[in-house]
Design a binder for these strands. Sequence first.
DNA 1: TATAAAATCTGTACTTGATACAGGTTCAAG
DNA 2: CTTGAACCTGTATCAAGTACAGATTTTATA
Lengths: 134, 134
Amino acid sequence: MVKKERMTRGWLSRKTGCNIETIRYYEKADLMPPPHRSEGGHRLYGPPDVRRLMFIRRCRELGFSLEEIRGLLKLVDGGEYSCGEVRDMTLAHADDIHKKVADLRRMERILKKMAAECDGGDVPDCPILDVLSA
Amino acid sequence: MVKKERMTRGWLSRKTGCNIETIRYYEKADLMPPPHRSEGGHRLYGPPDVRRLMFIRRCRELGFSLEEIRGLLKLVDGGEYSCGEVRDMTLAHADDIHKKVADLRRMERILKKMAAECDGGDVPDCPILDVLSA
DNA sequence: TATAAAATCTGTACTTGATACAGGTTCAAG
DNA sequence: CTTGAACCTGTATCAAGTACAGATTTTATA
């Protein structure tokens, strides 16, 4: 006998790691489609919803805005996705991230240097403002 | 005669690229110090404010919360902590940054890899979308 | 100098991307 | 058949801004 598990909002939340309230929010925000409902009005999902929500979550982690994700999903839903458009968005994001990494590494190095100077006993004259505001 | 340019909020906004309203917001949020005022009550800034605001902006771009930036600015402002405390906070921040760098590098790698798999044409099976929803 | 136009002032409302809570209903286990 | 967990809706809250309204100040032009 197969264990019949109801695929409710809580189930989807557990499957995806997405906050249960956020699922409702994404539905209202037109990222997730309105799901089927039980007799009593409870939301009922399925594996495709897991896939879609994972996609949304992954995109958020990668720094896409909900608006951008809506765009990506439209490509998915429409079936006529232009791979070039998706690639362009992706590369633009990758480029942003690359620049951020460079700055963060610079900042890390400076903070470590400050800490080292601080070890010596005198208050360091912090150069971090200069570096990041340049 | 030197052209005397009033260093108002609009000036600071133009110098830093920061939204003019956001400057007021940062003042209320204790990130920017209350500036001097003209006779009529208009805010008057100076070069140090440009430096500080640029720093805040860059930190935001790098993913620091206002709370974290407040912490960094306290280190920068100095005087409030013992040398040991400064060193500890600084190293903690450096550690945070190190983790952020690792995460961002991972994201960048994934995005680049996905883009590489994409030939840019109108192929109706975009690998990026597959990868993201997998 | 008078006055119009631009900039700024304060306070409040709206936005995004969630998350939390209140009070009521449905579901499933015992 | 009860009872508690899970779910429902709606609204409130949060962070980090952004926008607007109506009043005042500053600056430029006639």
